[in-house]
Design a protein around this nucleic acid. Structure first.
Length: 294
DNA sequence: GTGATTTGACCCAA
DNA sequence: TTGGGTCAAATCAC
C-alpha cells in the first residue's frame, strides 16, 4: 500500500506539472515558454516513469503469482483453456480449467490508427492467428480473438483480443492474455514489461495528431502489417500477421520484424498488468485529484 | 497443398 | 439464462 501512496504522490506531481504547463502554454505560448515547457515536460516524464516503476513493483506479484502461464518446459496443455477441444471429450476440463481464459495474466493496450482501414499499428511483432470473432453486447464493433501462431508448434498459449472502441473507430482496445513461450514471443516478453524504457523512444504523435492521455504506459505503435482484426463489410485483405509495433518502433530490438518497413502511426496505452487497468479508468476520470488517495 | 480466415455452434462462468 | 470465449468445419488465399 505504500507503493500506492507513492504512486499517488507521483501522479499528483504530474498533475501539478501539467497544470503549470497548461498555464504556461495558455498565457505565453511564445518562444519564451518553450524552455519552460521542455523543463516541465521533462519533469512530467520523470514522474510518470517513477509512477510506472512503482506500479509495476507493486503489481507484478499479482500479475505473476496466481496464474503463471504454461511454461515452455511444462505441459503446454496445462494452462490453456481451449485445449480441451483437442481431446474427444471437450467437457472434461481439469478443475479450474475452462474454455474461458480467466486465470491468465492479462494486460491491455490501446492502439490508435490513422484511418478506419489502417490496421497496421495493431500488429505487435507477434504472429497471431485469428480464431474467432464475436459481437459483444453493447459494443458497436465485434471483438476479434487471436492466439499465437506457434501454439501448436511451440506450445505458446498467448492470446489477444482486439476490439474497436465504441466511441472512437480509430481506437482499438487490445487485451493480451498470457505470456509468450514461443521463441518469437520471448523477445516480445522481454520488452513488453519494460514500457518505461520503451517510452523513451516515443515518437511524435502520428499524422492523426490524436492522442489518448492516460496514466497507463504509453508506447508508440509501429507495424509493418497486420491481419485485419475484424471482418467488416469492406474486408481488409492481404493480411500479414508478421509484425511488430512495440519492439519495432518503441524499442529497437525487433529480430523478427517483417522486412517491410513501417511508419509509426499509432499511440498505444498499455497497462502491462492486470491491476494497471484501474489506472486507465482513473485516467478517464479525475484520478489526478489524488488527495483522496493520499 | 498448405496455412490462414470465417463463422456457426458449443461450452462455461456469471 | 445470457453473454463471452473457443472450437472446428468450410472456405479462401497464396
Amino acid at each position: 500500500m505504500e507503493e500506492r501512496c507513492a504512486l499517488a504522490t507521483e501522479l499528483a506531481q504530474v498533475l501539478d506539472t501539467v497544470r503549470q504547463l497548461e498555464a504556461h502554454m495558455g498565457v505565453k505560448g511564445g518562444a519564451d515558454g518553450g524552455e519552460t515547457c521542455r523543463t516541465l515536460v521533462s519533469s512530467m516524464r520523470s514522474s510518470v516513469d517513477r509512477s510506472i516503476h512503482i506500479a509495476m513493483s507493486s503489481c507484478c506479484v499479482v500479475l505473476g503469482a496466481p496464474e503463471s502461464p504454461p511454461s515452455a518446459g511444462g505441459s503446454p496443455r496445462s494452462g490453456g483453456s481451449d485445449q480441451a477441444a483437442d481431446s474427444p471429450c471437450r467437457g472434461a476440463h481439469a478443475a479450474g480449467q475452462s474454455k474461458k481464459r480467466k486465470t491468465q495474466p492479462k494486460w491491455s493496450t490501446q492502439v490508435r490508427v490513422n484511418s478506419v482501414e489502417d490496421v497496421g499499428p495493431l500488429d505487435d511483432g507477434i504472429s497471431w492467428r485469428k480464431y474467432g470473432q464475436k459481437d459483444i453486447l453493447g459494443a458497436k464493433y465485434p471483438r476479434a480473438y487471436f492466439r499465437c501462431t506457434h501454439r501448436h508448434t511451440q506450445g505458446c498459449y498467448a492470446s489477444k483480443q482486439v476490439q474497436r472502441a465504441h466511441g472512437d473507430p480509430l481506437l482499438f482496445d487490445v487485451v493480451y492474455h498470457g505470456n509468450h513461450t514461443c521463441a518469437q514471443g520471448k523477445h516480445y516478453n522481454s520488452q513488453r514489461p519494460q514500457p518505461v524504457a520503451s517510452g523513451e523512444h516515443r515518437q511524435p504523435q502520428p499524422a492523426g495528431g490524436q492522442e489518448r492521455i492516460s496514466v497507463g504506459l504509453k508506447t508508440q505503435g509501429c507495424a509493418p502489417g497486420v491481419a485485419a482484426p475484424f471482418s467488416f463489410p469492406s474486408k481488409q485483405a492481404g493480411a500479414d500477421t508478421g509484425s511488430d509495433f512495440q519492439a519495432g518502433c518503441a524499442t529497437t530490438a525487433a529480430p523478427f520484424m517483417s522486412p517491410a518497413t513501417s511508419e509509426c502511426k499509432a499511440s498505444t496505452t498499455e497497462s502491462p498488468m492486470g491491476d494497471m487497468e484501474f489506472m486507465l479508468q482513473l485516467a478517464d476520470a479525475d484520478f489526478l485529484d489524488n488527495s483522496r488517495y493520499l
